[in-house]
Simulated scan of single mutants.
Amino acid sequence: METVPRVTISNEAKKVVDDLRERHGALMFHQSGGCCDGSSPMCFEKGEFMLNENDVWLGTVYDCDFYMSKDQFEYWQHTQLTLDMTPGRGASFSLEIPMGVRFVIKSRMYSETERDHLQPIRYGP
C-alpha cells in the first residue's frame, strides 16, 4: 500500500490556492488552536509565518507545506484532513480572507490499514 497523506485538498480549494499563488507566489498553511478563527487553517506566503518546535509538518498539499501546532496535532492525529473552502469572510490573517472565502478543514478517521501507512511527520521548522 502507498503512503497515506495526512492532508488532502478539495477541487474548490485548489482554485483558491491557484489564485493566491498567482498573486503571492509560493504558499504555506498553518493550523493552530489559537485566536481569530480558532482552528481554521490559515494560508500565508511561504516563510511568512514563523515556525518553531511547537509545530508539526504534516506534509505537502497541492505543493504547499501544511503545518499544525503540536497541541492540535494531538487532537487531529487520528484523522485525515481535507483542506476545503467556504464562502464568507473569516476573522483571521489568512490570505484568502479579502476574497470573501475562507479555508476550512474537513476530516475523517483513518482505517486500521491506513494507520499503518501514514505519511511521516516532522516536528519543528
Rank of each mutant, 00 (worst) to 15 (best):
M1P: 10
M1C: 13
E2M: 11
T3R: 13
V7Y: 07
T8A: 09
T8C: 12
I9L: 09
S10T: 15
E12N: 14
A13D: 01
K15S: 10
V16H: 01
R21L: 09
R23F: 02
H24S: 03
G25F: 04
L27H: 01
M28K: 04
F29C: 02
Q31N: 08
Q31F: 11
S32A: 10
G34F: 08
D37Q: 04
G38F: 14
S39W: 08
S39A: 10
G47E: 12
E48Q: 13
E48A: 13
E48M: 12
M50V: 14
L51T: 01
N52D: 15
T60I: 15
D63N: 03
C64Y: 00
C64R: 00
D71L: 13
F73Y: 15
E74P: 02
Y75V: 12
W76N: 04
Q80T: 00
L81H: 03
L83F: 09
D84I: 00
D84C: 04
T86I: 10
P87H: 08
G88P: 02
R89T: 15
E96Q: 15
V101N: 00
R102L: 13
F103E: 00
K106R: 10
K106E: 09
M109Q: 14
M109G: 10
T113P: 04
E114M: 11
R115N: 14
H117Y: 10
H117C: 11
L118G: 03
P120W: 09
Y123P: 00
P125H: 15
